[in-house]
Simulated assay, not measured.
Amino acid sequence: MPSSHAVLWRDPALPHVESRRACHSRACYKAHSHPTFSIGAVDAGFSLFSGAADGQARLTPGTLVMVPAHRLHACNPAPGQAWSYQMLHVDADWLTHVRQESGLGGAGAGEPARICRAPQVYAQFCELNRVLFSSASTCEKDAALIAFLGDLDVGAQPPLTPAPGLPDTALSRLIAQVEGQDPAQLSLELLAREAGLGRYQLIRAFRAATGFTPHAYLLNARVNRGRQLLGEGHALAEVAYRLGFADQSHFQRVFKAHVGVTPGQYRGD
Rank of each mutant, 00 (worst) to 15 (best):
P2M: 11
S3F: 14
S4K: 07
W9F: 13
R10E: 06
D11T: 03
R21I: 13
S25Q: 06
R26Q: 10
R26E: 10
R26H: 10
A41Y: 00
V42P: 02
V42M: 08
G45V: 13
L48C: 15
L48V: 12
F49C: 07
G51F: 02
R58V: 15
G62D: 08
T63C: 14
L64W: 04
P68N: 06
R71W: 05
L72I: 10
P79Y: 02
Q81C: 07
W83N: 02
V90E: 03
A92M: 08
T96F: 12
T96V: 15
H97I: 15
H97F: 14
G103T: 00
G106V: 06
G110D: 10
E111W: 09
P112T: 05
V121T: 12
V121E: 06
C126I: 08
E127W: 05
L128E: 02
L128W: 02
S134K: 04
S135K: 10
S137I: 01
T138V: 15
K141D: 06
A144S: 13
F148T: 01
L152R: 07
D153M: 11
V154A: 09
P159T: 10
T161F: 12
P162A: 09
A163R: 10
P164G: 08
G165S: 11
A176E: 14
V178L: 01
V178K: 02
P183S: 02
A184E: 09
E189Q: 14
L191N: 01
A192I: 00
E194P: 06
Y200Q: 15
Y200F: 15
A205P: 00
R207H: 08
R207N: 01
G211N: 01
A216G: 00
Y217P: 02
N220D: 12
N224V: 01
R225P: 03
L230Y: 02
E232H: 11
G233I: 07
G233E: 07
A235K: 15
L236F: 12
Y241E: 15
G244L: 10
F245D: 08
F255C: 09
A257N: 07
H258V: 12
H258I: 07
V261N: 08
P263T: 08
G264L: 12
G264C: 13
Y266G: 05
Y266P: 08
G268R: 03
